[in-house]
Amino acid sequence: MKLPDKRRAIHDAIAEIKDGDTVMIGGFGVPGTPMTLIHALVDHGARNLTLIKNDANEPGMGIDHLLQSGQVARLITTHLGLNCNAIALMNSGKLAVEFNAQGILAERIRAGGAGIGAILSDIGIGTELADGKQVVEMQGKVYVVEPALRADVALIHADRADSFGNLAYVATARNFNPLMATAADCVIAEAERVLPLGQLRADDVHTPGVFVDHLTELGELSKEYAVVRR
């Protein structure tokens, strides 16, 4: 037996994304943001997208390109503080933004990936972040219901992969990537290196390849992946 090869040309993989889709995108700041897949999505041109991403990167980087091209109708996120463009779009009403507490966003995605409908959490109770949310009482405590999140497509950045799509992340580039890789109907991963089967040790796999539909190997990294000099 041999595990299937999931390598695919990047634009063929991105062509699966349709107008109106919900797209999860990994990354926290630059680390783990799939910059190359994002550019391919800009080229592809799908519109009216809902993005789920921890942050909005910085002006001229990452998902800022999708915001500037007008492809995004809605953004589910935790923090936009480093992207003044995103804040301006939100304030002008051109971009609908739903803020989540960061760990709750992570758990909603984890639940979506695990086939769980919602989580119960006491985070934000007594603040405006809990306003309008369904509340339940369980074992004498009050919780808000946080619905699971799934997406049509997830865009993932990995450090190493094998041709089956087993993925390994590096340093703080892991962040939301392994969670999002479980929570979308179609998972597209870019990897800095794609190794032959057997070269990524089974013990070193962070995301099992069964979650990955399409895999693309990055050539030379663009300058967007580099250290940001602020």
Binding site: G29, N54, R110, N175
Partner: peptide, 27 residues
Amino acid sequence: DRNLIDAGGAYVSTIPGSAFFDSATSF
């Protein structure tokens, strides 16, 4: 290291015994 930042975006480093984990584990 381009892949090693803190939550504020500052470039930090590891020390002996450091650990990396995903955002769900972190919270």
